[in-house]
Amino acid sequence: MTSITDVPGIRVGHAGRTGAGWLSGVTVVLPPGGTVGSVDVRGGGPGTHETDALDPTTLTRTVDAVVLAGGSAFGLAAAHGTQRWCEENGRGFPVPGGVVPIVPAAAIFDLGRGGDFTARPDDAMGYTAAADAAAREDGHDVERGNAGAGTGAAIGRGQFKGGVGTASLTLDNGVVVGALAVVNSLGLPTAAGKGAGDGNPGAWDQPPLPLNTTLVVVATNAILDKAECKRTASAAHAGLARALNPSHTLADGDTVFCLATGAIALDRSSESARQSGLITLQSAAADAVSLAILDGIACAEAVSTPAGRFGAYRP
Rank of each mutant, 00 (worst) to 15 (best):
V182H: 01
G33E: 13
D110F: 04
F93V: 13
G165E: 00
L211M: 08
G239K: 09
R144K: 07
V7H: 10
D172M: 02
Q282T: 04
A131F: 01
S270M: 08
C86R: 01
K226N: 11
A273C: 05
D6F: 04
I4R: 11
V217F: 02
A77F: 07
G97P: 05
T48R: 01
G165V: 00
G75Q: 12
L278H: 10
E88P: 05
L68Q: 05
V63K: 07
A222K: 00
K226E: 14
G195L: 07
E87G: 12
G162N: 03
R91L: 14
P101E: 13
D198L: 15
A135W: 04
F310L: 06
N245P: 03
Y127D: 11
G202Q: 11
L23N: 14
A167E: 01
A251I: 04
D55R: 08
D254L: 12
D172T: 12
A192G: 15
G19L: 09
P104S: 09
G165T: 00
D64N: 10
G145F: 08
A133F: 04
L188G: 09
A129G: 07
D295T: 06
L291M: 15
G277L: 10
L23W: 02
P201S: 01
L211Y: 13
A133V: 01
S290Y: 02
A77T: 11
A20L: 12
I108L: 15
P306T: 13
G178W: 00
G163C: 00
D138P: 11
T48C: 06
A192R: 13
G165P: 00
S272E: 15
A105M: 06
G81D: 09
A203D: 08
T35Q: 08
A79T: 12
E228M: 13
Q275C: 08
D55G: 02
A147Y: 03
V63D: 09
Q275E: 13
I102W: 02
